[in-house]
Nucleic acid binder design. Structure first.
Lengths: 205, 205
DNA sequence: TTCGCGGCTGACACTGAGTATCAGATTAGA
DNA sequence: TCTAATCTGATACTCAGTGTCAGCCGCGAA
């Protein structure tokens, strides 16, 4: 599914990319995203500025390229779901797949999320990626649904809401230093739609 | 509430800003946002590049500054709501205030939304503004609520979902060239949360 | 009216992101 | 081993955005 490196060239490229990102990430955390230039990064990594820029189109991508597969992860998980569940359950479970994919090293993810949170440019770019994922996810959510309607406002809104939950939950989780259980956080977040929406805003939990 | 120009200096500044934006907007629509440079804009407007940049910090703001008051409009509308309504109703009505504020000239707004839609940089910046509004809106939504809980996941999710609806509805509306009724579109969008969330994704409408 | 002050303007210089090109080194694969 | 594709570093370029500075304009006080 997600760009399995097949040729030796691809393997090499993938490895170099990871190493460059690793070196750069330390600099970003140390000095701050905006303060670090491509000249700094290339020097620290021991390659030319040209080469560094060839691996990452923009400075934001140096940090955010790890999120690229998330869109596919969600759509695939949505397909794997048994279709006789309601939209919210399917989305919740798809989101669980997404966070499972992201949480390989807890400490690393917490650090990345912290860096993103305090850097508006990174937040913005991440939102862009999120917007790119949405159409495909909407299509998959509707595909297994009986009637395929042309105007899919409802599905679009639900997917958009679910993707918002993804970042809200990850924010909560990283604020707790990765201690809280992501499954429970997802449940608590989705409760915003299942609870009777009375003026009582708080979760029973 | 929203920056009423008081001194003569403020009035002048406001007027110049509007005129510069007007001239620039034509260029953007004609040539495309990314193709137009500040040099082009300043020449077209008859001022120096320095002056133009003093009125708008970034090229994105030349287009998007009209959305700046929306955050305040929503929070104010939320306060004005009778508190004995449920969260979704209050948010829906607050959003109606927002779209009413935005729709002064239908054709103009449709054009702006079209320009934004086909320019990733503008989408991203608009999302940033949206994220800036959120905390204050969440606070207002909870303020009039009986128990003020510290962890406000539910309220945050609901506000995030509502703000997503804002752009989804505006997108739908501008796709119909401003023909469709925004109130009905809002209702249809919020139905994503009120309908029983069965696998039937489509709106009864 | 004249003076002085604060803000506006244009000109200029500068940093840094991102694009494009090119010659030479390297490597995959026949 | 040979060839062609690819990678690399160097260089030059455009443009966004920041900062500075001297001159100008309008406004209030003397």
């Amino acid at each position: 599914m997600s760009a399995a490196p097949v040729g030796t060239r691809e393997i090499s490229r993938h490895a170099v990319r990871a190493e460059l990102a690793r070196v750069a990430f330390n600099r970003f955390c140390l000095t701050g995203f905006n303060q670090v230039t491509f000249a700094d990064l290339s020097e620290a990594a021991g390659v030319s500025r040209s080469t560094f820029l060839r691996y990452f189109g923009t400075k934001e991508d140096v940090v955010l390229f790890v999120f690229d597969p998330v869109g596919d992860v969600i759509t695939d998980a949505l397909d794997a779901e048994r279709a006789n569940q309601d939209d919210w359950s399917r989305l919740r479970n798809a989101l669980e797949s997404a966070v499972k994919f992201l949480v390989r090293d807890v400490q690393e993810l917490v650090t990345i999320l912290g860096l993103i949170e305090q850097t508006p440019a990174l937040c913005a770019r991440l939102r862009e990626k999120q917007a790119e994922w949405r159409p495909e996810i909407v299509a998959r959510l509707q595909k297994t649904t009986s009637s395929t309607d042309g105007s899919s406002v409802i599905a679009t809104v639900r997917v958009a809401a679910a993707l918002e939950i993804l970042w809200i939950v990850l924010g909560q989780w990283s604020a707790s230093d990765g201690q809280e259980d992501l499954g429970k956080l997802l449940d608590a977040a989705f409760a915003a739609f299942s609870t009777p929406a009375c003026q009582q805003t708080d979760a029973p939990l």
